[in-house]
Each structure stands twice: as C-alpha cells, then as structure tokens.
C-alpha cells in the first residue's frame, strides 16, 4: 500500500538503533510481513533499495519473512488459513473469522557491523 513511507520508517528505526546498539552499518534487515498486512513484499523490496541510498544501510540485504494469514473459526473450533480478511472458513464456510496471525509488519532483527 504505502511501502515507500513504511521503508522510511524502517530506516528511521535503523538510524535510531545505531546509537543504542552501537553499530556503523547495517548489512541485513529481517522483516516479518503478514499476508493480511496490506504490504506487498515486492513493492517493499523496490522501495527499500531507493530509500536506503546514502544511508548506513545502503548495502543492506532485505530479508522478508512472509507470514500466512490465520484466523480462528468458532464453528470449527480451530485455526484456519485465510488469504483475505473477509474470507469465510475454508472448511465450513462460516464467517466472521477472528484473524489471529498474518496481519503484522515488524522489524524482527538486524545484521550489523
């Protein structure tokens, strides 16, 4: 959706953490992106490369860990996998389902030097 400003937010965190964690360069950034987060991993990669130009993460590799969408179906009394927010249960067809994973966009960890 708004991958450019998300990448700018990521870069701000890298710059902030540089002082706290005492590093000069970032060599890899690990993001967790859920399938229901509205973030397109390909667009994220594209924006990341342009946003980090001239920064401490200029040469950083972007590792995106994609998390599948998961929801609780109270009819089945079980977690089921979903690809969209509004989907009905793939097993029994009922909805609404309670989304409980796959809506995150998180910076998980960094590889730094």
């Amino acid at each position: 959706m708004h991958e450019l400003s998300l990448c700018e937010s990521v870069l701000q965190v890298l710059e902030q953490q540089a002082q706290i964690e005492n590093y000069q360069t970032v060599t890899a950034v690990y993001l967790e992106i859920g399938a229901l987060s509205g973030v397109d991993p390909e667009a994220m990669r594209f924006c990341f490369d342009s946003v980090v130009q001239g920064s401490l993460a200029e040469k950083a590799r972007l590792e995106i860990i994609e998390i599948a969408g998961q929801a609780w179906c109270s009819a089945c009394n079980a977690n089921v996998l979903v690809e969209q927010r509004y989907e009905s249960c793939p097993n029994c067809g009922s909805y609404p389902l309670q989304i409980n994973d796959g809506d995150q966009m998180r910076i998980k960890q960094l590889e730094v030097a």
Partner: peptide
C-alpha cells in the same frame, strides 16, 4: 581486525513511530 557482523533483535512494529 574488521568488526564481524552480529545480529541485533529489534521486534518492533514498523508503524510503532506513527
């Protein structure tokens, strides 16, 4: 002599600042 890379745990929501 060059400092090796190391991992730093962040576990922060990208939208945390907003």
């Amino acid at each position: 002599g060059l400092s090796p890379t190391r991992m730093v745990k962040i576990e922060q929501d990208i939208l945390a600042k907003n």
